[in-house]
Design a protein around this nucleic acid. Structure first.
Lengths: 338, 338
DNA sequence: AGTGAAAATGTTCACGTGAACATTCAGTCT
DNA sequence: AGACTGAATGTTCACGTGAACATTTTCACT
């Protein structure tokens, strides 16, 4: 059996409380005693029992990392980037649990005893129910990636997708494009709505006529991007540029263009969103809007740890800027037909 | 404060042990009492305290999912596929804990009290130290993705990379290629070695002369594939086909070919390994060797749960086959120069 | 040396659960 | 009816830790 503080106490000839205090660096322990206890602890190869500690302190040393869904609509690179970001910032003593909200039948299992804090990568308004549950449980919460409109006490970190799309659309315009199509993301995702709004705002500000047929539904997957582009290519009045709500769909869309014997960007310019790893390795390299998802995750984790330590529940909303990454999938139109 | 079994006991007018027994479906509880207790438990919205339970039962309800490293050398798609696979099979009551081995300074924190079972996606022989630690702790273990040669008690599930590469190399040969180059994976990874061996075996069996300059080092990243291919393209006697140890590098390699104004597959044929999501959306679509990593993860999780429940430590080694996926990045050579 | 205060350590208890052992109860057999 | 049996439930304790409160030790100051 692995040693407990009582075993250490016996060997060191002190009471178990003294050991506890020493290990927790209490100030009222003589330096000498402390050293002795640490020595014994090391000799016995002591490891604290987190379950017992959790029980008495009512802490879990666990941080939950939740996604709206892990199986559906969450791209690999998104999942991986988030996990990497969180891993950078999280302390070793914390366990990191990864799950999709949709894996849960019942939120009962999500409570203070099990989670010291929760990071939610929220993609859909439907997560609100989950968020409410977490808040009810008074579990420190950080919501990333989706803006929380109401004034509930949460840390909210996100990228300004709307502006990102707006700027990208304008960029297409500045390059002479007037017939700009848009491939939407997965229905029900907040980012889908945000990005579409950014696009429409730009369209209006640029005094372009919004043609319904230029807005096509996708589902955030490469396949859906492929299919959506196929539809756009059948149009009599074909667009000269297509904005795809994420890079995965942009990759699918490029494939669709090639499959018709057309070229990117000569025939069709394409812009994506996210700047995933492959984006710079496609041919042509994908012009896209970089969303600092790893940074967001890292920052969010830091904020969460801060709340967990200080117990103060300040409310913060941080927008991390997006950035247009110019690569080779957009061409400058020579003839501008207004 | 959330209710405990003692609160339930008080309301139901029984002892807390009776409540405990009822909730755990003990046979020696009258059906009537049991019903009453469940009713009260539901009314009070009772949720068991896992910390207390863990303390007394010495179980953690936690499964650890470990990677050799999360930040280095593990591709996004690999990470995501594994997590998805595990999530399919794991039961709701278990927490899933994700970390890279290299995030740990000290394995002390990895012990039976914290982990009921561990799934290791092993990529390097250096993981052996970790494996030994886990075995010493008598934590049920499943090692995926890398073959364990010795007879220690583990479940070992993996794909037969060597055969996969062998077959793919032969496929290039059958298509008339004689000058076949090879881009190695990240140094220190077992898969790197396995795949290289498969390649060399094929080379020998096909009576080809192994040219040292045809074997170039990579690091599993797209960038490294790009750079490695650049080197190959400078050779006086340029290869007609290149086998890349993973798809990421294949994507980088393709980019390198294009950047020289050459074409895939007309000038250079390329084969990858893994069959990641984008592989079918590159242009040309990437011919590759499919490795069923999600299946491996799912299967591994099932096996782990089995051991954890039955307590019996059987030893299993399962090879899941790889499969050559013919797409468009390999061309049949017309002139065969032996 | 004696006093008092602060520093250092010890004793006891609680956390929520489940197991071992103890007791009660209902029903059966003589 | 009394003794016995097994089912049903209760009592007590342990798990490992840390907090509250209690006690002892140390040391400065008179």
């Amino acid at each position: 059996m692995r040693p407990t503080i009582k075993d250490i106490a016996k060997v060191a000839g002190v009471s178990h409380t003294t050991v506890s205090r020493a290990l927790n660096h209490s100030l009222s322990i003589k330096e000498e005693t402390k050293e002795k206890i640490f020595k014994v602890a090391n000799q016995l190869n002591y490891v604290p029992n987190y379950n017992a500690r959790s029980l008495v302190l009512n802490k879990s040393y666990t941080v939950g990392l939740f996604f709206t869904s892990i199986a559906n609509g969450t791209s690999s690179s998104f999942l991986a980037d988030v996990i990497k970001g969180v891993n950078v910032a999280i302390e070793e003593k914390f366990n990191l649990y990864v799950r999709g909200i949709d894996d849960y039948q019942d939120y009962k299992l999500i409570n203070r005893q099990r989670f010291d804090g929760i990071i939610l990568l929220s993609q859909s308004d439907e997560d609100d129910q989950f968020i409410q549950h977490v808040l009810d449980q008074k579990i420190p919460l950080v919501v990333l990636n989706r803006e929380m409109k109401d004034d509930r006490c949460v840390i909210n970190i996100l990228s300004n997708d709307r502006d990102g799309v707006y700027d990208a659309t304008k960029y297409l315009f500045m390059n002479g494009h007037r017939k700009i199509a848009f491939i939407e993301g997965k229905q029900g995702f907040k980012s889908t709505k945000e990005r579409k709004e950014g696009f429409l705002d730009a369209y209006i500000d640029l005094h372009l006529n919004v043609e319904n047929q230029y807005v096509v539904q996708g589902a955030n997957t490469m396949q859906s991007g492929y299919e959506a582009m196929k539809v756009l290519l059948t149009l009599a009045n074909r667009p000269t540029a297509v904005f795809c709500s994420n890079d995965d769909m942009a990759i699918g869309a490029m494939k669709a263009v090639f499959s018709e014997g057309l070229s990117v960007p000569s025939d069709i310019s394409i812009i994506g969103f996210d700047d995933i790893g492959v984006a710079q390795y496609t041919t042509p390299a994908l012009t896209t809007v970089k969303r600092p998802i790893e940074k967001i995750s890292e920052k969010g984790t830091e904020q969460l740890l801060e709340i967990m330590n200080n117990e103060l529940t300040k409310q913060v909303k941080i927008f991390l800027g997006t950035q247009l990454i110019e690569r080779d999938s957009v061409i400058q139109m020579r003839t501008i037909d207004v």
